[in-house]
Every structure is written in structure tokens, then in C-alpha cells.
């Protein structure tokens, strides 16, 4: 390869890398279209037993007011919601309640916070606060990053 071709390739690649990075930034930052939505209030009852939350997945929309009622059916269990810092402890006959506004969208795992046996660390459920924008952005990011990488390494 001649020197000129080499340096062309270099600038060319630099261009690709720079635009990929810019596009990835855009994927993180672009405002995504939001639907008009009037928040609702939910009361969600969750039963906890070793080693399951029933139901294991909850869905609400951003802005909703969520009241979680944790009822334990066999022994003492807790419920800690990642990212919302909600922590409930319930015991059979003593249910626990917490109310919060689901103001962050995305998927938040909730997990048992009181050791309850072998599988306790994996006693996990998830709270989906829709729309799941972080996931959309993550997909955009992988698409842009993936295509950018393809272009960058393509010969």
C-alpha cells in the first residue's frame, strides 16, 4: 500500500470511529417521543414464599403511584426494589405496605431482603416501569455501535 493510500485509510477510519461515537452519544441523549399519559394509582399485591414472588413481574407506567402490599405466606421475607430504595419486611399474618411514585422508567429487579434459605439470594422479581426507555436506548446503542464496528473493521 502506498503512503497516500495508508493515510487515506487512516483518516477514513478515524471518520468512521468519530461518527460512530457521535451516533452512540445521540442514542443516549436523543429525546424519545413520549405519549401523553395520565398517571394512575395501582395497588399491587405480592405474595412472597421461599423462594418466589407471586407475581414475579409487575408492570406500571412512569408517573403511576404504586402501592406495594407484600404478604408472606410461609416465613419472613423482604422486598427490596432496586433503584427505588423501597424495603418491606413481611411475615405471615403481618403484611407490609409501601407507596411510591414510579418516576424512573426501566426494569428494576426486586429481591428478598431477609435471608430465608438457600435460594434467598436468587429470590428475584422485576418491576417494569414502562416505557422501558433504557432498553430502547441500549438497543439503539448496540445497533449503532455494532454497525460502527462493522464499518470500522470492514475491508
Amino acid at each position: 500500500m502506498t503512503k497516500a493510500a495508508l493515510s487515506y485509510r487512516h483518516t477514513h477510519r478515524f471518520g468512521i470511529a468519530a461518527s460512530a461515537v457521535l451516533l452512540m452519544l445521540a442514542a443516549i441523549l436523543v429525546p424519545l417521543p413520549a405519549q401523553a399519559y395520565t398517571p394512575r394509582a395501582h395497588t399491587l399485591q405480592i405474595n412472597a414464599r421461599a423462594f418466589a414472588f407471586e407475581p414475579g413481574s409487575l408492570s406500571v407506567r412512569r408517573g403511576d403511584t404504586v402501592t406495594l402490599v407484600l404478604e408472606a405466606t410461609d416465613t419472613v421475607h423482604g422486598l427490596y426494589v432496586d433503584g427505588y430504595d423501597v424495603n418491606l419486611v413481611a411475615e405471615p399474618g403481618k403484611s407490609a405496605t409501601a407507596t411510591f411514585v414510579a418516576d424512573k422508567e426501566g426494569k428494576f429487579k426486586f429481591r428478598c431482603s431477609v435471608a430465608c434459605g438457600a435460594l434467598h439470594p436468587f429470590m428475584i422479581g422485576e418491576l417494569n416501569v414502562e416505557p422501558n426507555l433504557p432498553f430502547v436506548r441500549a438497543l439503539l446503542l448496540t445497533l449503532v455501535g455494532g454497525i460502527g464496528a462493522l464499518a470500522f473493521f470492514w475491508k
Partner: peptide, 17 residues
């Protein structure tokens, strides 16, 4: 502490235990 798990928190006899 002692009864609600069987008799229910609301006394309706529907406690989980």
C-alpha cells in the same frame, strides 16, 4: 404475632398458615 397467620389479618380465617 401469634394468630393472624392462621386466622387472617382481617380475622376472616384466610391466613396463609
Amino acid at each position: 404475632r401469634d394468630c393472624a397467620a392462621c386466622h387472617g389479618e382481617r380475622g376472616d380465617g384466610q391466613g396463609p398458615a
